[in-house]
Design a protein around this nucleic acid. Structure first.
Length: 212
DNA sequence: GCGACGATCATCT
DNA sequence: GATGATCGTCGCG
């Protein structure tokens, strides 16, 4: 058992820092009485209006992304490629539009439930490997959009894991077809050597932080 | 373990 | 009507 992250964790201004600090924390869901969860091993930061990769780029505000503008500490769910539900953590004070995409988990709780939700995928390494996969494993869909992390359907705990800087890899985000510098800015974070990270190879190239 | 590719539809223009 | 913050499968080796 750990300590539920307080609202202040999510309200900080620097979404990139929050994205990095979410590594090693545990995320749990209790959906229709089914409990499951795991350790966050991979995240990506999306930084509000200035970030061309963000749904809130240039202040864009639609029915879909409205919850990005809420106070930090709620979840933003949306459908990608028409099929996959994505889990994001909204950060920053009300009116800002930062979010962290959760990209992979090391599953620790409710393995049977996750296997069933994932259609009995035969390899546990793949249960929560990738943003679409982990949302499905946790039982989350776009209908959970806006849920608070301080209530009892989804929450994040600090279980006392401390990562050293050397344990964290920063790399370009996955799947963005946008202009530099945002295409390559190293706002993807993952735990070095962790077997549950979605794509190790996408990020072996050296990363030169762009001038923003 | 890796690269290529097709599936599939909510969302926005 | 075009576009994805992806996934699973297949072929390769």
């Amino acid at each position: 058992m750990g300590v539920i992250l307080p609202s202040s964790f999510y309200l900080r201004e620097d979404v990139v820092q929050v994205s990095k600090e979410l590594l090693g924390k545990s995320i749990y869901t209790n959906i229709n009485g089914l409990f499951s969860g795991g350790i966050i091993v991979e995240t990506e930061a999306y930084r509000g209006p200035e970030d061309k990769g963000s749904h809130a780029f240039n202040g864009k505000r639609t029915a879909r992304n409205e919850v990005m503008y809420a106070e930090g500490g709620v979840i933003y769910m949306y459908i990608c490629y028409g099929i996959h539900d994505m889990l994001n953590i909204v950060t920053g004070v009300s009116g800002t539009s930062h979010a962290v995409l959760i990209r992979a988990l090391e599953p620790t709780e409710g393995l049977d439930i996750m296997r069933e939700r994932r259609g009995f995928i035969n390899d546990d390494r793949r249960l929560c490997k990738g943003p679409g996969a982990l949302a499905q494993a946790l039982g989350l869909t776009k209908f959970h959009n806006g849920l608070s992390l301080q209530e009892n359907q989804i929450w994040i705990e600090d279980c006392g894991t401390t990562l050293k800087e050397d344990d964290i890899v920063a790399a370009p985000r996955i799947g963005l077809n946008i202009e530099e510098p945002y295409k390559s800015v190293p706002w993807r974070f993952y735990i070095r050597g962790n077997r549950y990270v979605s794509r190790i190879n996408a990020s072996t190239a050296p990363v030169i932080p762009p001038q923003l």
